[in-house]
Design a binder for these strands. Structure first.
Lengths: 357, 357
DNA sequence: CTGTTAGCGCTTTCAA
DNA sequence: TTGAAAGCGCTAACAG
């Protein structure tokens, strides 16, 4: 870019660079006459102030870091859109980082963000203690935790009432008569997964039903696996393995056993599709043969067969709120951590009373 | 951030700032002994080079602009992931811009990107002539067109064979016996929409069937509308209206008429869901009552009822390729515009021969 | 093999 | 009401 600099504008307008700077930033009074000359010069030369130079002196980059698991996950894409829409109003922008739930990637990105001198950070942490994250907290960089907590990090959290949502859904299942329920989750380190498990347990406890610990299952946050019977099975790129099997693989065996569960609770949207694929593969019809409740409410859930009963989260709002909070933090306002958003059980048609065996 | 600067590192290590700079960038030989001292000092002070200062002198920001319609559209999220994965290998990062297909937003973002001194640009242009875009081309900023052409912009295009894909799908429909086919598209300015329409027309022409121009329909790139019968109908945030009705609204009337089409060709993934909602609302079963082919192959398409016949695009690869090309451009390599990727017709179960009326 | 130093383009005191 | 000039943190001649 053969960029024109502020000097050239100053010369063109016949004023000093200081004056040009001040008309651009409206940071001190300039007579209307000279102001106009400057504006004209800017126009004529098509001048755009150099953001890097400006950052260097103001120490503000108007950049924030957004660290999430994967932009490809609909939960995070809606969140990201919320963040973008909010901060772009402040002329801020985002550096997007996909960790794939890999602590090493998280750390690497965090270090990059430090070097980039970001003004603030929104992060959905994996939950494994992170050295650079601690550092940033100590350095006083404004941070907002998105959706998930992180051990040892003191920062406002914008999230939903996970335990309550899971509790409601589980109770609904139990009231329908289910006792043999699988709880399918992703990584244990992720705080929302633990919270949801807590809600699940609470519902069992209240109903005086023992939880079958062997049916608390972990699956890779990727939803897929390889199924020979589904030739056009979607294959996602960049599968960063956590060395645990996919939802599809975890369920396939269990669902084929005669002793199979009557319902599945899925604690993460990425696992939902894998679960549905497994149902299909095993020839199980939902809800006749097996009931399903899942966290998150994708676009297609209401018109799926059957329409899916879900626990819905206000994803876009989550992002927007986190961003708005971060902007306040950056501007030095004191803020309180907001109350969790409710997670709403939406009853559609993927659950029914278990069939007598 | 109380950042430490290169000076402090130099002092700590007992060398000049030049030496520190050179060990960081490996840009001239430094004896192992002093190198070690510098490395230690960096470690001890937890030094991170200031990206803004570096940009100021090198004139390279290691930032690119990625201008797309909407990150919430699965097509673009996969593309974005491809871009991110590729450029992060070069330690580049992305400024994400959602235009919502609004030319004003596109222009605003482009100007922002110029001010940010981006090293390059990947853009899925709306197709309306854009002044800042022209400017950037003239200024010699490396640009890669993603998925779509833009009038007057000379830049390599990374896209798919849209006309051919649409032709295949339409021919398939015609061979099944369909003649009464709706072609549903979004904005006329978007080149891919035109290309797909061309393919559609070609298939009709070859079969000697006249195209019903009244059934070439435009809908808002948002897929939704308000349906009283679907209480949990998803509502997307930030609906930037183009003042044209949604797919759902466009189809609802037509599908209720006795003279309705026997098939629908949907030229954009965002319209597919609206179309399915309209089917549901009108009580039409697919494929018995009406056949459907759509561009793009979302995760849930293979397990939908019916499994959806689609024209699939290699979304992730598109992003990756565009990014890889842009990196070459930035490094001054001469490149050719790559051949379009194939768009593959995947026949599943959403089409059948039309019922006799 | 390493150090000195002149800027990159901007903001911001200080002075007029 | 405006200008001169210092300096943000870094890189890259140039000099030794």
């Amino acid at each position: 870019m053969a960029s024109v600099s502020i000097k050239e504008v100053a010369k063109e307008a016949g004023v000093s660079t200081a004056t040009v700077s001040h008309v651009i930033n409206q940071t001190r009074f300039v007579s209307e006459e000279t102001r106009q000359k400057v504006v004209d010069a800017i126009e004529a030369l098509d001048y755009h102030p150099n953001a890097a130079a400006r950052s260097l002196v103001t120490k503000s980059t108007r950049k924030i870091g957004l660290v999430i698991a994967d932009i490809t996950n609909p939960f995070f894409t809606a969140v990201t859109r919320g963040v973008e829409d909010e901060i772009s109003q402040y002329r801020y922008h985002t550096i997007l980082c996909n960790t794939d739930e890999d602590p090493k990637r998280e750390d690497d990105y965090l270090r990059l963000l430090i070097a980039q001198q970001i003004d603030g950070l929104i992060i959905a942490p994996i939950g494994v203690p992170s050295e650079p994250l601690m550092q940033m907290t100590k350095a006083g960089i404004p941070i907002v935790l998105l959706d998930r907590k992180s051990p040892g990090v003191e920062a406002p959290l914008v999230g939903v009432a996970n335990a309550e949502g899971a509790y409601q859904a589980t109770r609904y299942l139990i009231e329908l008569g289910h006792q043999r329920i699988i709880f399918l989750m992703t990584l244990k380190s992720i705080s929302t997964q633990q919270d949801r498990l807590d809600g699940f347990r609470r519902a069992f406890h209240e109903a005086n039903i023992p939880v079958n610990e062997e049916w608390i299952l972990n699956a890779d946050p990727r939803f897929y696996g390889i199924s020979p019977s589904l030739p056009t099975f979607p294959v996602k790129p960049s599968p960063k393995s956590q060395n645990i099997p996919s939802a599809y693989e975890v369920l396939r065996e269990l669902l084929k056993s005669p002793n199979r569960p009557s319902a599945v609770f899925v604690a993460n949207n990425q696992l939902m599709l894998g679960t549905l694929y497994a149902f299909k593969e095993c020839g199980l019809h939902c809800p006749e043969d097996i009931s399903l409740v899942s966290f998150d409410d994708p676009d297609w859930a209401p018109i799926f067969s059957p329409p899916l009963t879900v626990v819905c989260q206000p994803t876009y709002q989550l992002g927007q709120t986190a961003a708005s909070l971060l902007m306040k933090l950056i501007q030095g306002e004191a803020i309180d951590a907001p109350a969790p958003f409710p997670a709403q059980l939406i009853i559609r048609e993927s659950c029914q009373a278990p069939q007598p065996i």
